[in-house]
């Protein structure tokens, strides 16, 4: 039985349009995998299949030797997920939202109350914990999502742009937190646009482009594939960029500078 996460030939069609095709990778416990790719590459679709929120058109997701489709609820009980868009019940306060999530996950009352209060404090949200989420900034909403994902001590953490909107301190804390969780045996998938963060946090990456995997492996291997001393940003740029970024930037500046 293979422990960890195993995505096998995942394919997803929306109507007749393929979003991802034949995406396969494995992720062992205690490791952090970076999922990279430009906008529209299929990252969010892949993440939604891995969380079990969508069903694949073909292929399977296995976790700890079991097809998640055979026990989706048990699987979700072990997953913590931070979504790309911070869609939350805005008429609730952060504490109420976390109470709801904790209760649905059947956390014992005293443990839940203690965890919520402590995590809110550690994330610097205690002062706003009883205000409606509708008044929160993007970073505050992101912190609520992170707490909700960590509340039940999940075995698998799926983080989709987790640093989005976070302030400098919270971002740094997150970058320290992820390796600590991995060292405690958690399996972590980290999807992000910010290659600098991925490079610091993840040892291995999968690069998606047009719904297919165009590269995968250790960051050092990817660098070796292209040129010496290249940053991950340069590697990804070579793999998925079809336009000349410098030239396009000049064009944008020219158009922006047009006057009547």
């Amino acid at each position: 039985m293979q422990a960890g996460l195993d995505a096998r030939h995942l394919t997803k069609y929306y109507s007749a349009v393929p979003a991802i095709r034949d995406v396969s990778f494995t992720l062992a416990p205690g490791t952090i995998l970076g999922l990279l790719g430009p906008n529209g590459s299929g990252k969010s679709t892949t993440v939604s299949l891995l969380t079990g929120l969508r069903e694949p058109s073909a292929g399977q997701v296995w976790f700890d030797g079991r097809n998640i489709a055979d026990g989706l609820v048990e699987y979700k009980a072990r997953v913590g997920y931070v979504s790309e868009e911070a869609h939350l019940y805005t008429f609730l306060s952060a504490r109420e939202h976390l109470d709801l999530i904790g209760r649905l996950r059947r956390l014992p009352s005293h443990l839940m109350t203690h965890k919520i209060a402590t995590l809110l404090d550690l994330f610097g949200l205690t002062g706003a914990a009883d205000q409606p989420i509708s008044g929160y900034s993007k970073g505050m909403k992101q912190k609520v999502l992170l707490i909700a994902a960590l509340l039940h001590d999940p075995d698998l953490l799926i983080l989709d742009e987790p640093e989005s909107g976070l302030d400098l301190t919270a971002g740094l804390m997150l970058r320290h937190l992820i390796p600590i969780l991995a060292a405690r045996g958690k399996t972590i998938l980290y999807s992000s646009h910010v290659l600098d963060h991925v490079e610091r946090v993840c040892a291995e990456v999968v690069v998606l482009h047009h719904g297919r995997i165009v590269a995968e492996g250790r960051v050092s291997q990817l660098r070796a594939m292209t040129q010496r001393n290249a940053s991950l940003e340069d590697v990804i740029a070579q793999l998925v960029t079809t336009v000349d970024p410098a030239g396009t930037a000049r064009d944008i500046a020219d158009v922006a500078g047009l006057r009547a």
Partner: peptide
């Protein structure tokens, strides 16, 4: 629905 776009939070946390 209380908020359609936020339904995923309950779907993910619900234990069946």
């Amino acid at each position: 629905p209380a908020a359609l776009a936020s339904n995923w939070t309950i779907r993910l946390a619900w234990l069946g």
